[in-house]
Design a protein around this nucleic acid. Structure first.
Lengths: 236, 236
DNA sequence: ATTGACCAAATTTTCGAAAATGCTCTGATG
DNA sequence: CATCAGAGCATTTTCGAAAATTTGGTCAAT
């Protein structure tokens, strides 16, 4: 989906990259974008045909995705795509609201030049690519830039671990977001909402930033719920 | 250290086990207990001598530990033990306090028979083994039972993801706890504190349970800070 | 008709060697 | 004297085959 540093938990050093990168992002992309259905069994043979890699590499990639929560496995049994459900989405959403509030508030209270610059820069990239009707590159780069922008907003937050957890949930949400995009006709306007959010943060308006954040998150959820047929009825 | 289901992120199904279990817990134990120092380089050759396993298995185990935050790695570079620092401990502690409050409060508000039973049972195991001077089994089973008890207290909480994050931090804290035990002469009294906590939860006393929780966590931290020489001065 | 055991096929897990990559020491050059 | 390039060494990463485990089906017994 778009991790520059896959599932690194923060101790207090910097993030890290892990081998088999292409594989991981490839499979993640397939899961997130709905190419593989929830609960589907992931056979090594198939994966190997679609993406390259040997047994070991594939195994590592899948294990990585397990730790991200996109794939499930029991000992000596096969790997399956993690199920998606309304209950799960609700859980993720409520926590996201909480974490986003906390990190944004913290981040705003710690001023920083490079931090502001990164917000402006990532926003620029996001809107620029939203306006370009360049379909090919768009579908690929879109989640990456979206992720980067939202990360920039809260990156100055003082707690590496809270930042990490926020990131995990953001990625999980990306899966549901992507599901929503799949069933939608006209693309939502990503520019105005994000620009307002950035302005609020740069203006150090905590209350406004929190409110816009909540609106943003809830809006996404509402959209997904309305557009994805499987989730309307699906329980488990 | 004591995961029954290593680093499984919760979607909404159940937890999962992953292969190479012995290896993972073995290395984790070595890191948590301080056999391997923070920032130490983990050479495959050494690991292979101490624990069994082939290249691939070891690699998988280490990758697993990376996702747990106990090991670091950069692409095509070696694995190292995650650094430990005061800043990290403080971050973990603050979040733990928050998550523990939330989960305990939630759990108490959802009554449940099997839940109460599990609390009583796990507490029984914990105190029973605390009184036994059976050193051999103790050092092995201690963290497992400790973990199980604290998990039982909050297991009824409605949010799988919050429960997951709480667990991650609990395990991280176990590393620092273990560091503290290493340098301490007489063992702390684990019985009274835990029994009081259990009583408060079973009596549905939210305020008291939260307070005792906070005391418990802060007490651990204070102990670690006071007893571990490396952390007194260590910055990075 | 249902249960239990057993065999065969399919799939996963493990393994150590081969290939690739990063690291260090030496020697040469500005 | 400091810096840089190259070769040799150490370590990691990748790979596909062998071993181990699960799954599904068949047959006999209750």
């Amino acid at each position: 989906m778009s991790n520059d540093a896959p599932t690194s938990a923060p101790g207090n050093g910097s993030g890290q990259a892990v081998a088999g990168f292409e594989l991981v992002s490839g499979i993640r992309e397939a899961i997130v974008s709905g190419t593989f259905d929830p609960r589907q069994k992931l056979k090594f043979e198939e994966l190997r045909a679609r993406f390259g890699g040997s047994m070991g590499s594939l195994r590592e990639a899948l294990l990585q995705l397990v730790s991200e929560g996109l794939v499930r496995t029991e000992a000596n049994r096969s790997f399956t795509v993690a199920p998606a459900s309304v209950a799960d989405l609700n859980d993720i959403t409520e926590l996201r609201l909480q974490f986003e509030r906390q990190t944004v508030t913290d981040a705003i209270q710690r001023v920083g030049d490079t931090w502001e610059a990164e917000i402006v820069a990532s926003l620029h990239l996001l809107v620029k690519q939203a306006s370009a009707a360049d379909g090919g590159t768009r579908s690929q780069a879109r989640p990456v830039r979206h992720r980067r922008f939202h990360h920039a907003l809260v990156a100055a937050c003082g707690s590496p671990w809270l930042l990490h957890f926020r990131g995990v949930l953001f990625d999980q949400a990306e899966r549901y977001r992507s599901l929503g995009r799949l069933y939608r006709r006209e693309p939502r306007d990503v520019v105005v909402g994000h620009r307002a959010l950035a302005d609020a943060v740069l203006a150090r308006d905590v209350a406004l930033a929190c409110e816009l954040s909540e609106l943003h998150i809830r809006g996404t959820v509402r959209n997904v719920m309305a557009n994805v047929p499987e989730l309307k009825a699906a329980v488990s």
